[in-house]
Deep mutational scan, measured.
Amino acid sequence: MTYKLILNGKTLKGETTTEAVDAATAEKIFKQYANDNGVDGEWTYDDATKTFTVTE
């Protein structure tokens, strides 16, 4: 399945997608991606749209 991440960081904003077997796997990938890019904030997930959002 395709999952989407919306980044609302102070210095980085944008979107990315990943292919993952489930939401938990996608979350791990996205949290590593956000960490690698210096984004740390409040996480939400919308199962209907398979979208994670992180807001600093």
Rank of each mutant, 00 (worst) to 15 (best):
G41K: 02
K50T: 04
E56Q: 12
L7M: 08
T53P: 00
Y33Q: 03
T16D: 04
T11Q: 15
A26G: 02
Y33F: 15
K4D: 02
Q32I: 11
A20F: 03
I6V: 13
T16K: 12
T49A: 14
K50Y: 07
Y3H: 03
K31M: 13
E19W: 06
E27R: 06
F30G: 00
I6S: 04
Y3S: 00
T25N: 12
D40M: 12
K28Q: 12
N37S: 10
K31N: 05
Y33T: 04
N37K: 13
V21K: 14
F52V: 01
A20H: 03
E19S: 09
V39P: 02
L5K: 00
D47L: 12
L7F: 14
V54F: 05
E42S: 10
L5H: 00
E15N: 04
T2Q: 15
G41P: 01
D36W: 06
Q32W: 05
K13V: 12
K28S: 13
T11D: 12
D40T: 14
A24P: 07
A23M: 15
E19I: 12
N37W: 14
F52N: 00
I6Q: 07
Y45P: 00
A24L: 12
A34M: 05
T16R: 13
N37Q: 12
L7G: 02
V54K: 01
A34N: 03
L12W: 10
E42M: 11
N8Q: 10
N37R: 08
D47T: 11
T55Y: 05
T51G: 02
K10F: 15
K31S: 05
A34R: 01
K10S: 12
T51W: 03
K13W: 09
A26T: 01
G41S: 02
G9I: 06
D46Y: 04
G41W: 07
D22Q: 04
E27N: 10
L12R: 03
K10L: 14
Y33H: 05
L7T: 08
I6N: 05
F52A: 00
A48R: 06
D47G: 14
F30N: 00
I29A: 08
V21L: 07
Y3I: 01
E27M: 13
G38Q: 08
E19F: 09
D40E: 15
K10W: 06
A20M: 03
T44G: 05
N8M: 11
L12Q: 06
E15S: 11
E15P: 03
L5E: 00
E56H: 06
E27F: 11
N35M: 13
T44V: 11
V54W: 04
D46L: 04
L12G: 08
T53W: 06
A26H: 00
G14H: 14
T25K: 06
D36Y: 11
D46V: 06
V54L: 10
T16P: 03
T55M: 08
D47V: 13
Y3G: 00
T53Y: 08
T18Q: 07
Q32F: 07
N8V: 11
L12D: 10
T2G: 05
D22W: 03
W43I: 04
K31F: 07
K31W: 08
K4M: 08
L5Q: 00
Y45H: 02
V21P: 15
K10M: 12
T18K: 04
D46K: 04
